[in-house]
Design a protein around this nucleic acid. Structure first.
Length: 568
RNA sequence: CGGGGCGUAGCGCAGCCAGGUUAGCGCGCCUGCCUUGGGAGCAGGAGGUCGCCGGUUCAAAUCCGGCCGCCCCGACCA
């Protein structure tokens, strides 16, 4: 392929709209072009990468016996009513109407569609298990499109669905799928973690995400050297037991004046103690119940955990007025001591390590020090409520975990019977009894993967493609196309290497060398054959984009050297 | 949806506060010459509904009102 004939619109300057490296580089290297917010065209170079990733995905799906299908993009909204997801998707569902005013959605994912297929075609346990996948454009009216194709409103996803007679069968496919995902990402040359995850609106019992590690990922994960990793959203906050307070329990708690000090920071500074010595009392209302949640002063409540523990998606903070009514004191001075009966007191597991704590006095400008749970008030339930952080302990091996940022490229779910039950998708088992399928679903962000790869593999000059997904394997750069000898040599390499099946891009543009070198670095083809002044000495150069290493190679050895590199 | 910012040539921006001929600059683009190992030089040139609609005014990129779009920060996710 010749550069002069290709549409590779490189940009010298950084586009205003791009924040993170992958987005910037995708625009600058001419991989994509934005149509409107969150909607992109993949230009030739970007599309080549996309196709390579798709191919790897297909190969790994096929390898585990998953069958490729193609489902509709346009979905009647009725099917979301049937599954009960019309509400949970909410505004993220792109909706439209046909000329008869029937409403449709642009498919955000295909659980409903595939379940409808299954329930009509897989009637017997003998038909199961089945696993199907597709690679298709998905639509989600993202609240906030961001980071180019990483969070787009229209994106390419591989989604797979499996149907089983029981959990054991699902487990097998789930495990196969996890392995396939690992292979896909490894084959794409990326460093990643498989992490325990929240299942979000897809729902289900168990799920794992595949995170490509990158400085600017939009997800945070905690990982341990033992191999365990978990999404920060879900990570349990665990610390080594370091009891707070040193009293012997004989001293009653005492009231201390804390004039105007409503924050943990104020109080800890004023009393000259660590924030962790304080315990925050957060007051919520769930249905008819008042709930107090006690957490260490240096921690924040994780709402996802809160909703799960209390089992109420509508749980809310008490209003300041309600706090005064309940506790008798103003906001900022709440504590667990002396709360009215009927208030359920929950505490984070970390509170178990406290022998003494400083808490609000439920009275303006006062706190209580030396308070002991059990003696001065009682805790009804201990649960995991707070955000974990770096240094918290691994639940498997107790070592401290480290924080990474990552791009979520895959997410696999054990759905159980969530969809099959609500959509009456059943099969007959050996005993002739009707049972809903046990299902799994498995998403992989193909277009996002392009960005994830760049996010992980770039430097100040541009992209550095992993060899398996690079748009071209070799860039031939004749320094001066007007020098007949140089250009003929370049053309000969192009012809001969292409004949050997190599994907070659020849920069035949009549531009100053500097421009071509800069563009070459930018688009990031891992190997560059430079043909220039050394040709007089019978030499050409192989430039390795990743290492900046330059190899001088005699002309007659060059082809063999290049071919060796791509030998299987 | 809440908060902040921005819309002027393909890209990056100035001009707007203090209204006044033909709306500028850099990059890119086209033609010619020249140059050819890290974003060269000279000369000439093309390219604009100044986001849209309305208002004020003798006169609007500039002032006022409305709308639209885009970006960033927060609540959601492959």
């Amino acid at each position: 392929m010749r550069w002069s004939k290709s549409c590779i619109p490189t940009l010298k300057e950084n586009p205003h709209e791009a924040e993170i490296p992958s987005h910037r580089l995708m625009l600058r290297a001419g991989l994509v072009k934005k149509l409107t917010s969150g909607i992109y065209t993949f230009l030739p170079l970007g599309f080549r990468v996309l196709k390579k990733i798709e191919r790897i995905v297909r190969e790994e799906m096929d390898a585990i016996g998953c069958q490729e299908v193609l489902m509709p993009i346009l979905h009647p909204t009725d099917i979301y009513e049937e599954s009960g997801r019309l509400k949970s998707f909410g505004p993220e569902l792109f909706k439209l109407a046909d000329s008869k005013k029937r409403t449709f959605a642009l498919g955000p994912t295909h659980e409903e569609v595939i379940t409808m297929v299954a329930r009509d075609t897989m009637r017997s346990y003998r038909d199961l298990p089945q696993c199907m996948y597709q690679i298709l454009i998905k639509f989600r009216d993202e609240i906030r499109p961001r980071y180019g194709v990483i969070r787009a409103r229209e994106f390419i996803m591989k989604d797979a669905y499996s149907f089983h007679v029981d959990d054991e069968s699902l487990d097998l496919t789930y495990r196969d799928m996890a392995k396939a995902y690992s292979k896909i990402i490894e084959r794409c040359g990326l460093n990643y973690r498989m992490v325990e995850a929240e299942s979000g609106y897809i729902g289900g019992d168990e799920s794992h995400e595949f995170m490509v590690l990158a400085g600017n990922g939009e997800s945070e994960i905690l990982s341990c050297t033992c191999g365990y990793a978990v999404n920060l959203e879900r990570a349990a906050a665990r610390r080594p037991p370091e009891p707070e307070g040193d009293g012997n329990g004989k001293q009653p708690y005492r009231e201390v004046e804390t004039p105007g000090m409503t924050t943990v920071e104020d109080v800890s500074t004023f009393l000259k103690v660590e924030p962790a010595a304080l315990v925050k009392t957060l007051l919520y209302r769930s249905g008819e119940r008042d709930i107090a949640v006690l957490v260490p002063g240096d921690r924040e409540v994780n709402d996802i955990k809160l909703v799960r523990v209390i089992d109420d998606p509508d749980i809310r903070f008490l209003e300041p007025r309600e706090i005064e009514t309940l506790t008798g004191g103003p906001v900022g001075f709440s504590g667990p001591v002396g709360l009215p009966g009927g208030t359920v007191i929950y505490a984070d597991n970390l509170i178990k390590t406290y022998t003494e704590m400083i808490v609000g006095a439920n009275k303006a400008d006062h706190h209580l020090a030396g308070v002991r749970a059990g003696r001065d008030f009682s805790i009804d339930h201990f649960e995991d409520f707070v955000w974990a952080r770096e240094g918290d302990l691994c639940p498997l091996c107790d070592k401290s975990m480290t924080l990474h940022s990552g791009v979520e490229v895959g997410h696999i779910f054990k759905l159980g019977s969530k969809y099959s039950a609500s959509m009456n998708a059943v099969f007959l088992d050996e005993k002739g009894e009707s049972r809903p399928y046990v299902m799994g679903c498995y998403g992989f962000g193909v277009s996002r993967m392009v960005a994830a790869a760049i996010e992980q593999h770039h430097d100040g000059d541009g992209i550095i493609w992993p060899e398996t997904i690079t748009p071209f394997q070799l860039l031939i750069l004749p320094v001066n196309v007007n020098d007949r000898k140089i250009f003929e040599t370049a053309s000969r390499f192009e012809r001969e290497l292409e004949d050997h099946g190599l994907e070659v891009l020849l920069d035949d543009r009549d531009l100053s060398p500097g421009v071509k070198f800069k563009d070459a670095d930018l688009i990031g083809i891992p190997l560059r054959l430079t043909i220039g002044k050394k040709l007089k000495e019978g030499k050409v150069e192989l430039f390795h984009r990743g290492t900046h290493h330059i190899e001088e190679v005699p002309l007659d050895r060059a082809k063999a050297t290049i071919m060796e590199r791509f030998a299987v």
